[in-house]
Computed example of a mutant assay.
Amino acid sequence: MSTSRGAPGSVLAVDAGNSKTDVAVIGADGRVLGTGRGGGFQPPLVGVQVAVDTLADAVTTALEQAGADCVDHVSACLANADLPVEEEELAQAVQARGWGRSTEVRNDTFAILRAGVDEPRGVAVVCGAGINCVGMLPDGRTARFPAIGKISGDWGGGSGLAEEALWFAARAEDGRGAPTQLARTLPAHFGLASMYALIEALHLGRIPAVRQHEVAPLVFTVSAAGDPVARSLVHRLADEVVAMASVALGRLGLLTEEAPVLLGGGVLAARHPELDDRIAVLLAQRAPKAVVRVVAAPPVLGAALLGLDHVAAPAQAHRTLRAHYA
């Protein structure tokens, strides 16, 4: 079956993260008619138009598989669409490509949330390179944070853990800070003998800065061995997750009723026991009726479900789509 040009109820779903993009064309009945994969989506680095260019190959592949020139509606959940004004700018740029009759752009955290719930109701916290949280209700109300770094009050994710671990390890080695096994584990991971050597290698580019993300898993390993400094970082991340989730639940009036809190992104999906346990304990105190789940479904499913919501697809279409990604 193929989709005719802009067939009523057809959806182009886009989930674009910092490292990769997934695209799917969905028929009005919920069947996946075509898919595509592309590179990372980083408008802050390359600009909006160039970033949207990076989506084009994957979109073209998916449309060709579906036998379509365009769809009824484009549902794009995009990394770095952190503010409503950015979502609007990106929506205009995507709409100008002519991929669909209408376009809606959301931050990619909404895809995680929608993928994990049967209706658009609940809160999602994502810890990948950074940290973000969104919430939504079926009536369209949302709760969100700017999530653009320290200037908007954010801390966490793999990059936050890595930066803090390097900071504590450097100070432990030179005597400014408390002792921690991080001072030995971090340089050893990169085949170096000291934090000084690691700092020099990172500063001079002998170790690419992108490899700092390898530090985050080491924090959990060292924490599990009983290191108090590493453990304080794990606990701090749990505190941040719970703070975001409980505030978002409160904004949506969901603190007093059972509501899902979905966890996603590489750090949370790794299911570190110490992090999971502390999140559960703290959330039980601040939002005792919250139901915590880790989202395993691909985010493009969430983008597609949001698209089906937009075109008022029947419940069976949603079930058909979920079955495809099960």
Score class of each variant (00 low, 15 high):
Phe41Thr: 03
Gly40Leu: 02
Leu308Phe: 08
Gly135Ala: 15
Val234Pro: 03
Leu45Asn: 10
Gly226Lys: 09
Leu262Lys: 04
Ala24Val: 11
Asp108Gly: 06
Ala93Thr: 04
Cys77Val: 07
Gly36Tyr: 10
Lys20Ile: 01
Glu163Trp: 02
Val234Glu: 01
Thr180Met: 06
Leu33Gln: 11
Gly158Ala: 15
Val25Met: 10
Gly39Arg: 03
Gly177Tyr: 11
Thr180Pro: 12
Ala13Phe: 06
Phe110Ser: 12
Ala147Gln: 04
Leu182His: 07
Arg251Gln: 13
Val23Asn: 05
Pro187Trp: 15
Arg114Cys: 07
Gly100Arg: 10
Gly265Phe: 08
Ala225Asn: 08
Asp239Arg: 10
Arg106Leu: 15
Phe190Gly: 00
Trp167Val: 07
Gln285Ala: 14
Pro314Asn: 15
Arg236Lys: 13
Leu218Asp: 09
Leu262Phe: 14
Gly67Val: 11
Glu64Val: 08
Trp155Glu: 00
Val48Glu: 15
Val219Phe: 09
Pro120Glu: 01
Asp29Gln: 05
Glu257Val: 15
Glu200Thr: 12
Arg114Pro: 11
Gly122Glu: 03
Ser246Phe: 13
Asp53Asn: 14
Cys127Met: 04
Trp99Tyr: 07
Gly175Arg: 13
Ala296His: 10
Val210Asp: 13
Ile26Ala: 09
Leu198Phe: 03
Glu240His: 14
Gly266Lys: 08
Ala124Leu: 11
Leu45Ser: 07
Ala317Pro: 09
Val281Trp: 02
Ala287Arg: 09
His213Pro: 00
Ala111Cys: 11
His310Ala: 14
Pro138Phe: 08
Val94Leu: 12
Ala79Gln: 11
Gly122Pro: 14
Ala76His: 09
Leu55Lys: 13
Glu173Lys: 08
Glu104Ile: 05
Thr109Gly: 09
Asn18Lys: 11
Ala68Asn: 00
Arg176Asn: 05
His73Tyr: 15
Arg114Ser: 04
Thr21Gln: 00
Gln65Gly: 13
Pro43Trp: 05
Ala209Ile: 05
Glu274Ser: 12
Glu119Ala: 03
Asp154Cys: 04
Arg31Ser: 10
Val85Ser: 08
Val71Trp: 04
Trp99Asp: 00
Leu161Arg: 13
Met136Trp: 06
Arg293Tyr: 12
Thr60Leu: 05
Leu78Gly: 03
Ser75Lys: 08
Gly264Glu: 01
Glu64Gly: 05
Gly34Trp: 09
Gln285Arg: 13
His235Ala: 14
Asp22Thr: 13
Ala124Glu: 07
Glu88Asp: 15
Phe110Gln: 15
Glu88Gln: 11
Cys70Phe: 05
Val295Asn: 01
Thr3Val: 15
Pro8Arg: 02
